[in-house]
């Protein structure tokens, strides 16, 4: 469904990605794990077209999207839930959700997906007239995911959805990610919380300083001695 081939991205002179290749099949949950600064966010931003890769190719559903605008990429069906949630603090919860549907014209479908978001996250329905900035961290993460779903994505990119959240909230969010996947959305999940991510993912990639150093089925990675010591704090 999505294939990155030898993607290299820079911030000015700093090379953040040094030739990343990975692929995601329809219906999968694939996780990308790695330490802080490994290039996980840059990978997602390169896919979304916010960062323009200097080299390499990104193909989505047979179409080369490497040089397309973010607007085009979103309309093709890739939506990102960015690191740190990035909800709009002074828009209401409902306005935040509807921003996710910015490029859509089908009023009935949008209405339906808004309802669906409230079903997945009942707290958002209660808070729909409140400003986004007044929500708790967990609620903001739910809002960020709900907002992305309003775009009706084929591929959902999630950047560290567990960041800064209490364990119980994280568990809840991960259950919902699995649910979203079962509903037919393919998921690329970036996490530092490798344990949780590998438990729900089908496959995984390990990123180190801009390169993929390990890949395989999630269960293999969970048992890999290197992953266990470096990312799971086990040995």
């Amino acid at each position: 469904m999505l294939k990155l081939t030898d993607v290299a991205s820079y911030y000015g002179n700093i090379q953040a990605l040094k030739g990343v290749s990975l692929h995601i099949g329809q219906g999968e949950i694939v996780t990308l794990i790695g330490a802080n600064g490994a290039g996980k966010t840059t990978t997602l931003m390169s896919i979304s077209g916010v960062v323009q890769p200097k080299q390499g190719r990104i193909v989505f559903l047979g179409e080369d999207i490497t040089r397309l605008s973010t607007e085009r990429i979103v309309s093709l069906g890739i939506t990102q839930v960015p690191e740190g949630r990035m909800i709009f603090p002074r828009l209401t919860v409902r306005e935040n959700l509807l921003m996710g549907a910015y490029l859509r014209k089908d009023k009935a479908g949008i209405r339906e997906d808004e309802e669906h978001a409230y079903t997945l996250f009942p707290v958002l329905r209660e808070r729909r007239t409140q400003m986004g900035g007044t929500l708790s961290g967990g609620e903001q993460q739910m809002l960020a995911i709900g907002r992305a779903l309003l775009a009706r994505p084929k591929l959902l990119l999630l950047d560290e959805p567990s960041l800064g959240l209490a364990p119980l909230v994280v568990e809840n969010i991960f259950e919902i990610i699995e649910q979203i996947n079962k509903d037919g959305v393919t998921v690329l999940l970036v996490e530092q919380n490798a344990q949780m991510a590998l438990q729900i993912a089908h496959r995984g990639y390990v990123l180190e300083t801009g390169r993929v150093t390990l890949e395989g089925p999630a269960s293999d990675l969970l048992n890999d001695p290197k992953v266990r010591s470096a990312y799971l704090g086990l040995d």
Binding site: V74, T79, L91, M99
Partner: peptide, 20 residues
């Protein structure tokens, strides 16, 4: 207008919504 307000609050997030 809502896109304008969104953009003023977080440009990256606005772009990620597909806002030109």
């Amino acid at each position: 207008g809502t896109a304008m307000r969104a953009l003023a609050q977080n440009q990256t997030a606005a772009a990620l919504m597909g806002i030109n």
